[in-house]
C-alpha cells in the first residue's frame, strides 16, 4: 500500500513535470522531408541541400506552364522560316519576344521533320540534327540542338521565347541567367537524353521548341527542343 502511494506520487510528479514542460515550451513538429534531388549537367541525379530559386521555379513550372505555353504559342516552322527570312523584325513583332533592341528575337516553334543527318556526331557537346521539314524534299531546312553545351546564341531561347519571364521578377542577372541553365538542363535530361542522336538518323518526328535569332541565315536556324515525339517510337 505504502509502496503504491509512493508510486502514485512519483507518477503524479512526472505528470506534473511533463505538463510544466508542455506549458512552457513551444514544440515544433518537423516532418520528415524527402531529400531534394536534382539532375546535374552530366545527367547524374544528385542530392542537394536546397534548390536555387531558378531550379525551384523550373521544377514548379516546367510541366505546368513552360511546355504548355510553348505548345500554345508555337508557330509552324515552314511558315516561320519563310517569315523570318523575309523580315525578321516583322516576324518578331508579330509573334516573337525580345527584351530590347540589343537582344535576339526569341520564338516558340513546332515542326514535322525527318532527320537527314547528324552534325558533329563526334562532338557530343555540339551535336545537331539536320532536319527536312514536311513535305519532305530531302533538302535541309533547319537544325535541332542535340548537344550538351548550349552556346550563347541559343541558350536563352526558352526563357526568352515563352514571353512572360522578365528580369524584374528575379533578384538579379545571375538568378535570371540561372533560369536559363535550369531550363536547358531540363532539355538535356528530359528530351535529348531520351534518344541517341545516331538512332534518330532517317527517323521522322514532331517537335516543339524555341529558337533565338539575330539574323535568319540557315546556320542560325537551330531549335532548342522541349518535346520530341518520334513516329513509331
Amino acid at each position: 500500500m505504502k509502496n503504491n502511494r509512493a508510486k502514485i506520487l512519483k507518477w503524479a510528479g512526472v505528470a506534473a513535470l511533463v505538463a510544466l514542460i508542455a506549458l512552457t515550451c513551444r514544440v515544433t513538429l518537423i516532418p520528415d522531408e524527402a531529400p531534394t534531388t536534382v539532375v546535374n549537367a552530366e545527367g547524374q541525379t544528385v542530392t542537394v541541400e536546397k534548390l536555387s530559386v531558378a531550379e525551384q521555379y523550373c521544377a514548379d513550372n516546367w510541366d505546368s506552364k513552360i511546355v504548355p505555353t510553348i505548345k500554345e504559342r508555337a508557330v509552324d516552322m515552314v511558315a516561320f522560316v519563310k517569315d523570318v527570312e523575309t523580315d525578321l523584325t516583322a516576324a518578331g513583332l508579330k509573334y516573337g519576344n525580345r527584351a530590347n533592341e540589343t537582344s535576339a528575337w526569341s520564338f516558340c516553334v513546332k515542326g514535322d521533320v525527318k532527320v537527314l543527318d547528324i552534325e558533329n556526331p563526334e562532338k557530343p557537346n555540339k551535336t545537331l540534327l539536320v532536319l527536312d521539314l514536311a513535305p519532305y524534299d530531302s533538302q535541309p531546312d533547319c537544325k535541332l540542338f542535340y548537344g550538351r553545351v548550349f552556346s550563347s546564341n541559343i541558350k536563352n531561347a526558352i526563357r526568352d521565347g515563352v514571353g512572360f519571364l522578365h528580369l524584374d521578377d528575379f533578384a538579379n542577372q545571375v538568378e535570371f541567367a540561372d533560369l536559363t541553365n535550369a531550363f536547358n538542363n531540363k532539355v538535356k535530361t528530359d528530351v535529348i537524353a531520351k534518344h541517341e542522336a545516331s538512332d534518330l538518323k532517317g527517323k521522322e518526328f514532331t517537335y516543339y521548341g524555341c529558337i533565338s535569332l539575330t539574323d535568319a541565315t540557315y546556320d542560325n536556324l537551330v531549335v532548342v527542343p522541349v518535346e520530341l515525339t518520334v513516329a513509331g517510337g
Partner: peptide, 9 residues
C-alpha cells in the same frame, strides 16, 4: 514604358 532592369547584350 520600360522595365526597371534592362539588360543590353
Amino acid at each position: 514604358d520600360k522595365e526597371e532592369k534592362q539588360l543590353m547584350d
